[in-house]
């Protein structure tokens, strides 16, 4: 098969990277040696692909590493990021639920504690009342004693 220009056009990468079978590569070489247009086309193509190498050589800010490192350190404590805490949408509801439970429990225990105090108070009040009565009784007795004297 005689190589034509269309074949070259369709296989620019394959020709440049020598990916074609040996026999076809030989025909390509032969065609390129005769066809000026295809030679120029291959040369244009090479000038484009050479730019990939230029892109690879592009440099970047020498201080970028320091900047990134500072950012990472400022970012906080990644160790604390356990699986669940990495779900921000879950953090707020969980926090709210925990606060509600804490509030309910505090209220419950405070109520319990308050009840026993009031009960104690009323009992001691009773003792005071009883002692008052006793004293008043005694006073009365004294009075009676005095009366019987």
């Amino acid at each position: 098969m005689k190589m034509n220009c269309k074949f070259i056009e369709d296989n620019l990468f394959a020709i440049q990277e020598s990916l074609l079978p040996e026999a076809e590569m030989a025909q390509v070489s032969e065609h390129l040696s005769e066809c000026r247009n295809c030679q120029a086309m291959m040369s244009s193509f090479s000038s484009f692909t050479a730019l990939i190498e230029d892109e690879k050589a592009a440099g970047f800010n020498a201080f970028l590493g320091t900047r990134i490192l500072r950012k990472l350190e400022e970012h906080g404590n990644p160790a604390g990021h356990s699986g669940m805490l990495q779900l921000p949408w879950l953090q707020r509801p969980l926090m709210a639920a925990a606060l509600i439970i804490l509030a309910v429990l505090t209220g419950f225990f405070a109520g319990k504690q308050g009840g026993s105090i009031s009960r104690q108070t009323s009992r001691s009040d009773l003792y005071v009342m009883k002692s008052d009565l006793f004293i008043s009784d005694l006073n009365d007795e004294d009075k009676t004693i005095e009366l019987y004297k």
Partner: peptide, 19 residues
Amino acid sequence: DAEDLSQEIFLEIIDSAAS
């Protein structure tokens, strides 16, 4: 863009290191 992006990428790396 690439430099700015790289900072975000490193933050994502440490944030999702557990996964």
